[in-house]
Structure formats: C-alpha cells, structure tokens
C-alpha cells in the first residue's frame, strides 16, 4: 500500500495539451501511472500520445472513471478547472502550478472540504509511490526506490536532495508527497502524517519543513498527543534566514513573530521528534528509528 496514489489510481490530466503536461504525461506513464484520459476545452476528440482528450471533465467520467486528476493548467484558470473536477466527483486533485491567486486557493480548499475532496498543492512537484509504480506530478523518479519511509515536504529540489541520499543508503520510500510551497495549501503536514499513520506500508515518517507558517508545529502537536505512534524525524530549512523576507516560497516568511525556526524546534522537541540540522544528518536519524 501507500497513501493517496497507488496502482489503482486512474489518473486524468487536465490541461493535457500544454508542453509541460505532454512531457510529464509521457514520463508518468513510462513510470507506470495509469493515465485514463486528458481534458482540454476545445480539443475534445483529439489524442495526446494515444491518450484520448475530452472537452470537459464530465465527458470523461462515464467511460473512463478517473479517481484522481492532475491539473496542469495555468494559474489564472486553476480555480475553474478545480471546481470542474469537484463537480464531476473527483476526490483526489493535484495542483502543480505555482502563482495561483491566494483567494482562489482559499476558495478551492474551502470547496474541497465541502465536497469531501482532497487537494495536494498548489506549487508542488506532486507525489510518488515507488512500490505501486505510480507518480502524479513531475518528481524525477530515478531518485526514489520502494521502501517504508513516508516523506512529506514543502519543497521540490530539497526533497530530491534528501531522498537521493536515503536511496543511496538503501532506504526506500512508501510515498513521497510534495505538499506545496504556498502559504495556503490543500493538505498540510498534520493531515499527511495521519495518512501515513494509517498506512501499513509506512514504517517511519520524514517531514521536510521550513520556516514560515505553523504547519510543522501542528503536526508536531499530533505526535506529542500520541495520535501518531510511528517514529517521525524531521529536517528544517531556513534556520539562518533573515526575518521579513520571502525566501523564494511565498510560504517561507517569518513575519509578525510567526513561523520562526525557534517555534518549530520547540514544538519538535516537545514531541520528541529528532531534527536534522543539515541534510547530511537525515540518513543517520532515519537509520536510528529503524534500528
């Protein structure tokens, strides 16, 4: 098993005709993801790499039964595309695009809660479940191997940097989830750790967090309360970042005393979550919890 995506995932690609979407559709498929259809208004009836394209999500539903959708649509039209997926009844939606207006994301997240759908992202490289041969997004799959560590991260390249070290050390992953670098995202750490807690394939959880917001603290609180019993280790980026600067991720900003490294380290300490100071320490911490 794994979380969120697996060999049973029937993926729809919204915005499939764009360059990036075509390229990554091909890579996802080569990895093993079952892509059942694509959507692009006005391009219905055409094909991309042998994948049928439809005008609307509703048109896809009957014959193809997708149970997840990845949205490769421009930020400006993301809200419309997400709402279309909600209305068609799709319950797992991955929004890879960045620069989505914050109010749109809030509307999408609120609507998702209303209809019981799950949003991953926005501003995420996506997710990958190596043992299930399923990836949804653009994570470079060569750095991932099947195994028992569930990884959740706010940042793409940092995840590759750290996961490649795990893989080199022979430590595989159950599912790696890029939760997104924006200040408002669909599924924060606190929800991901609960999913990993309930996933039989996951033996330990690695959280790759950073300064800004309070997501890390909220997840740590669950660990402290005993709701997460699997071992959790963490890495935090931005220990030396100056306050009041958006450090690349809009979500990574220390402002008004919120989102400081001290607050996060305190929360992890209270929850007895070991935190790596540098990426080089992560492998050792993970090996320790498995020994």
């Amino acid at each position: 098993m794994s979380i969120l995506i697996n060999s049973q995932t029937r993926l729809l690609v919204q915005g499939i005709t764009g360059d990036a979407a075509r390229f990554h559709t091909k890579l996802m498929r080569e990895y093993g993801t079952n892509i059942v259809a694509g959507v692009r208004p006005g391009a219905g009836g055409t094909e991309v790499d042998g994948i049928k394209v439809f005008n609307t999500v509703q048109d896809v539903m009957e014959g193809k039964h997708p149970n997840a959708s990845i949205l490769f649509v421009p930020a400006k039209v993301m809200k419309g595309a997400a709402f279309e997926a909600f209305e068609a009844g799709i319950k797992t939606i991955v929004m890879v695009s960045e620069h989505i207006p914050l109010h749109d994301t809030m509307e999408i997240v609120t609507k998702a809660q209303l209809v019981g759908a799950r949003i991953i992202g926005p501003n995420t490289p996506g997710l990958i479940s190596p043992a299930e041969k399923c990836k949804v997004g653009f994570v470079p799959s060569s750095y991932y191997i099947p195994g028992k560590v569930g990884v959740a991260s706010r940042s793409g390249t940092l995840t590759y940097e750290i996961v490649s070290r795990l893989t080199e050390a022979g430590i595989g992953q159950s599912t790696c989830v890029g939760i997104g670098g924006d200040p408002v995202i669909g599924t924060p750490f606190s929800e991901i750790v609960q999913l990993f807690q309930n996933d039989p394939a996951t033996g330990a959880i690695l959280m790759i967090g950073e300064i800004g917001g309070t997501m890390e603290e909220e997840a740590a609180e669950l660990v402290q309360k005993g709701e997460i019993t699997k071992p959790v280790v963490a890495y935090l980026a931005g220990r030396t970042a100056p306050p009041d600067k958006k450090m690349g991720h809009a979500g990574a900003i220390i402002a008004g005393g919120r989102g400081t490294i001290e607050s996060k380290l305190d929360a992890f300490e209270r929850a007895r979550i070991p935190v790596a100071k540098v990426p080089g320490e992560v492998v050792g911490l993970v090996q320790e919890v498995f020994s």
């Binding site: 940097e161 670098g181 990574a252 540098v278």
Partner: peptide, 12 residues
Amino acid sequence: SGAGLTMTILDL
C-alpha cells in the same frame, strides 16, 4: 534552484 534547497544552502 528551489526555495527549500536554497535556504538549506544559506544555512550550510
């Protein structure tokens, strides 16, 4: 490239 990795480099 990437916010998290860049912050990590600043830290290092």
